[in-house]
């Protein structure tokens, strides 16, 4: 059983070393970590049985908030940008959440989509404010007042993002295991029971929703600073789809899966773009199909199955697949008339 934890521990140790081996990989890894943190938000919601097809909204709000801050007279200080961006995402998560927590299943997903598409149209249309489709250039921010050259800044950003990912992963686990986290997950398993207990499922869901929006915000600020540019693309439906894609790829509902999925996704995408520039979408699409059809538990599911086969303890692969699939089951029941 110990072996199950050796490989993850090794991975966590290896990742910080990667930039020494391949400097160009640093940026890819920062992007993967940024997306992984955002996907963590989507994953959290999956634990309550809700799938959002519009979480790119919070990602984009935080990114634009930090871009506006960097452009303003206050200037760009990384930690201020991060705090403000996350706060903006959390606040808008609260406002949007007040509406959408009344809905479940496909309606929840669609309302989120509608909100994100509206924000996308606004970003596209109000050219003189938002830079339209070309977005806003984000100057490299200072870190605690120190201005760094690109290479140093990226090194800082990489290790910071790495530590932040570990920290937020831990926070997410703590949240899900806390009393409120258990109530939150009960929205999935038995919402009525919550009501019998005298607890408002909406308010519980709202707490988780704001938390997930904040996580998307952190991801958005990180991506905006490493990319040096924010575009309406950050809010587009394909990006929301990408987040759900990564969550499923990694293993829906799994905290580690969010990061494993994001890393795999970014690497496949980078290599597909490099070596099959004409058909990178096809490669990703086929990758997704194979995962869904043959490994519905995602990469974490594959790993668990592998470990169980190797060490012959615990249930069969089939159980595990059924288990991980249960992560989204209530959404199905919710839509039945």
């Amino acid at each position: 059983m110990l072996a199950r934890y050796v490989i993850p521990a090794l991975l966590i140790l290896i990742v910080p070393l990667l930039p020494f081996l391949a400097p160009w990989l640093k940026v890819v890894l920062i992007i993967a970590l940024a997306k992984g943190i955002a996907v963590l938000g989507v994953t959290t919601l999956l634990r309550a049985g809700q799938v959002s097809f519009g979480h790119a909204l919070f990602f984009a709000i935080a990114a634009y908030a930090s871009a506006f801050l960097a452009r303003s007279a206050v200037g760009g200080e990384f930690f201020v940008m991060l705090l403000l961006g996350t706060f903006a995402a959390g606040l808008s998560g609260l406002l949007v959440g007040l509406f959408v927590v009344r809905y479940r299943g496909i309606f929840f997903g669609m309302l989120n989509l509608a909100f994100s598409m509206i924000f996308w149209s606004i970003l596209e249309k109000f050219y003189y404010l938002t830079g339209g489709a070309d977005g806003i250039h984000v100057r490299r921010p200072t870190v605690l007042g120190i201005s760094l050259a690109r290479a140093e800044f990226e090194t800082f950003l990489f290790y910071f993002a790495f530590l932040l990912a570990l920290l937020l992963g831990w926070v997410a686990l703590r949240f899900l295991n806390s009393p409120i986290g258990h109530l939150f997950q009960t929205v999935k398993t038995n919402e009525t029971r919550l009501q019998y207990l005298g607890i408002s499922p909406r308010r519980t869901l709202l707490v988780g929703y704001v938390f997930s929006a904040g996580l998307c915000g952190v991801g958005g600020v990180l991506l905006a600073t490493v990319q040096g540019i924010v575009t309406p693309d950050y809010a587009w439906w394909i990006r929301s789809g990408e987040m759900v894609f990564i969550a499923v790829l990694g293993g829906a509902g799994s905290v580690a899966g969010a990061f494993v999925g994001a890393l795999a996704y970014e690497l496949v995408r980078t290599y597909a773009a490099a070596f099959a520039a004409d058909i990178w979408q096809m490669v990703l699409g086929a990758f997704l199909l194979v995962i869904i059809l043959f490994a519905p538990g995602g990469m974490i599911g594959i790993y668990d199955t592998l470990m169980r086969r190797l060490f012959r303890n615990g249930g069969s692969a089939r159980d595990r697949d059924a288990e991980s699939e249960a992560a989204y089951r209530p959404a199905v029941e919710g839509k039945k008339p």
Binding site: V244, V248, L288, P296, E325, R329, V332
Partner: peptide
């Protein structure tokens, strides 16, 4: 299968 997976397919 769950509808997220259907949609993703």
């Amino acid at each position: 299968r769950p509808e997220v997976l259907q949609l993703l397919v």
